[in-house]
Design a protein around this nucleic acid. Structure first.
Lengths: 189, 189
DNA sequence: GTCTATAGGACGATAGAC
DNA sequence: GTCTATCGTCCTATAGAC
């Protein structure tokens, strides 16, 4: 799935640099230096800086799309599906925090593939929203504003990349459970 | 407080452009064009591109610091304080969504003032964390992982800028109340 | 697969006229 | 307060040697 090709090393390292400074502020010279080579040498492995960004963002976006489809095919209550979504985000963010940073902060720098990315994101959010609406209709979820519930959960889940790398003592199952408890049941006694 | 000086127009417009493309991707020529002047003319009003970023980010960061100090001086339960923090974020984000975007996504491009910004952020997070810890000790807040609670609330509150401008039908008091209900009491029935 | 050299353009910022 | 002109630097990407 992730062969140790030179191209893959470049993409992994680029994602790490993008996380720290953002796509626009990272130069091909920065990336080359971080890999111990010259900027011109990068072009033997990748087509352009833009192609690196596309690779990072779209592979993750497609992972989320596939994960959501699995969740929708499963039988299960709405709360159960929300817990599966939480687990999906924790899993992807813990495996590729740097890529998640690029997806969250640099998606607007996608050029040709911007529309494709936006369509994936839109579909994902619609599926997420429909799960919440179903839950309210079934009486599993409180009748609060749907958009506020969706926004609140998505904000937390999309920010996981900022936070997971610092908390290696908390394993991903514990984190997933703890997040479920807090997002679903709240914090007051 | 915000006189309609040319300098202020520049800063307001810069914040709007930074929100769309990020600090690094916005050029002084972009900014000048958006204001209907030439890039060189900007320098009669501002010292540098960097100075614009500092102005945007630090004025908001100091607003949060002052807001937190008021909350800490007030008598009140931990839950009450958390509700005041939610209100603080909604108020600032609704008044200056573009500036919040810069604070959230471009703080790392601060040069001389980076350490100052980080010290304000650190103090703010520590105060937030201590309110949660107090609440757990007093039995007002569930004994879940403190860092997960802090992260979850902060992630949602920090993302408000992305979302408030699109929801003008929801007034800020309604939004504040709805967010409180969801973040404090959860969503399950 | 990496290098040197460089094309061709955009960048932030300054000087000085009006 | 805005302009034109320009400086010196950095940018992505290509050409061609090794």
């Amino acid at each position: 799935m992730k062969p140790e090709t030179r191209k893959n090393e470049i993409i992994i390292k680029a994602a790490a640099l993008f996380k720290d400074k953002g796509y626009s502020a990272v130069t091909m010279r920065d990336l080359a230096t971080a890999l111990g080579i010259k900027a011109a040498s990068l072009y033997n492995h990748i087509d352009s800086k833009q192609a690196i960004l596309q690779d990072i963002i779209l592979s993750i976006a497609e992972e989320f799309t596939a994960g959501m489809e699995t969740i929708l095919q499963d039988e299960g209550s709405s709360i159960n599906r929300l817990n599966q979504i939480i687990q999906l985000h924790v899993t992807i963010a813990s495996r590729n925090a740097d890529g998640m940073a690029a997806l969250n902060t640099d998606w607007m720098h996608l050029e040709n593939k911007l529309d494709y990315y936006l369509s994936l994101r839109d579909t994902y959010e619609n599926n997420f929203r429909n799960i919440i609406i179903d839950g309210i209709e079934q009486g599993e979820i409180k009748d609060e504003n749907v958009e506020v519930i969706l926004f609140s959960m998505l904000s937390t889940l999309r920010s996981l990349y900022l936070w997971i790398p610092k908390k290696e003592d908390l394993n991903i199952d514990q984190l997933s459970d703890s997040l479920s408890a807090i997002l679903i049941s709240g914090i007051n006694t």
